[in-house]
Design a protein around this nucleic acid. Structure first.
Lengths: 246, 246
DNA sequence: CATGCTACTGTGGTCAGACCACATCGGCGC
DNA sequence: GCGCCGATGTGGTCTGACCACAGTAGCATG
């Protein structure tokens, strides 16, 4: 009943309140938000409105909620953009907001750039990029008795590991989202592969080639190899897709 | 299918139900979702749980809701990823999930690639990219009596117009999000500019140079000019920021 | 005195019901 | 035939009530 204001949506007021507290440094990652009831009382809105705002924050990867009591309970500020980006891309693809071809084009842009950056970093005198995680995944992909779906999951993890190695959290989260957006199509595309054995062998070889070019600090080769790797795969599995330029 | 173990959350069931209906083609953009009460009854959950799911869908840019009656009322499937991406990036920056430096680095990657693509498209025999909207914005920025904040808004719109011209909706939405994420910093940065007149003149000139390179189908020049334009501006306003490589 | 179990407390999660503001549309009165 | 006006149904919000859960204090017991 607190004559708050003109804002037509109460839950938006909650969202803005939390965002402001974040920007002001009042709330830091790891800290807890006030309880839903307290937040509702403070802002003069109902608890349901608070919950709707918290739901949005949770979907955006801003908070994690837990029931019960103790320091682990409640809404805790985290920053896990990967899941949020994945949900966003997945839903946008489902609603035809993001054409699959644009997802692939964007993936091409980001991965090509990441590979080039990694190679450049390898050439510098400073710390070389950490490719251990990526290579461990490549080793796992050499296992001969992998289901195609398992191989695909490792493949996705490898590409994500490259992004992580670049140290760019925005690119990492975005690539996780892009991958999620086309996951369904990737699984469908498995059925189109005639000779899976040959295809997986080629993919493995291409992966090694990319890492090799990065290690050799050959940015141009890293770029072109990862580009050809991705566009070649999509050309094979989705020949009807609009050809990706770039 | 990454069938994650079911969480006992009712609102997630609603979310997944809507997503499946989207994927199955039952729900198309422009169509209306069932009413909240009907949805609650159909899925056997409370209306508040339905509302929490709808709130997430709205935040993700999937639906638009309107009160009242008639064909425009209710929850209508739309696909406006720009707003969702902006909110996501803005919140992640606020929660320190996305370092500002990574936002800038990603912007550099995407815009450089977009400029190159546009120049390549201009060289092809097909339809040249539509740069009219971008150039109209440049004309507006030539107005001598613009507040710095107004100039900045037009600047952002110009860069977004380039992305739109590339025809990649994922990149367009992502760039809108990146811009939103650093909007606060950009406004703060205005205070650091000593000679705004000189700076704005330089920015205008650089913008024209980018468009000129695209029109001339000089991809290399377009890439380097947009790269220098962006990194130069951030180097000027945020010299303390970790130097962006790439 | 130490220990183990048990209520207590506070958290989010959910549901039900009740209003309100709003926009449309059918029907009554003119 | 025309115009106004209430019936209707929508989302938006609030309230209050439960539930499951996880710590924690405190009692009972050895």
């Amino acid at each position: 009943m607190t004559h708050d204001s003109e804002s037509p949506r109460a839950w938006r007021a909650v969202l803005e309140h939390v965002e402001r507290r974040l920007l002001d440094g009042d709330l830091l990652p790891g800290e807890r938000l006030p309880g839903e009831r307290a937040l509702a009382a403070d802002l003069g809105v109902g608890r349901s409105s608070v919950r709707e705002a918290l739901r949005v924050l949770e979907a955006m990867g801003l908070i994690r909620t837990a029931s019960g009591s103790g320091p682990n309970a409640g809404a805790i500020i985290v920053a896990t953009p990967g899941g949020a980006m994945s949900a966003l891309m997945r839903l946008q693809v489902a609603a035809h907001g993001f054409p699959v071809a644009d997802i692939v084009r964007t993936r091409l842009i980001l991965e090509t750039s990441v590979a080039g950056e990694l190679a450049d970093a390898a050439s510098g005198t400073g710390t070389a990029p950490d490719l251990d995680a990526a290579e461990r995944l490549l080793d796992a992909m050499d296992s001969p008795d992998l289901e195609p779906a398992e191989f695909l999951a490792l493949d996705a993890a490898f590409h994500l590991a490259l992004a992580e190695a670049s140290g760019n959290q925005v690119v990492t989260a975005t690539m996780a989202g892009l991958r999620s957006g086309i996951e369904g199509y990737a699984l469908d595309g498995l059925a189109r592969i005639d000779d899976w054995h040959a295809t997986s062998a080629r993919l493995r070889s291409e992966h090694r080639g990319v890492v090799e070019a990065i290690r050799a600090a050959d940015a141009a080769a890293a770029r072109s190899r990862i580009h050809d790797h991705i566009s070649g795969y999509y050309a094979e599995t989705f020949p009807e897709t609009t050809p990706v330029n770039a």
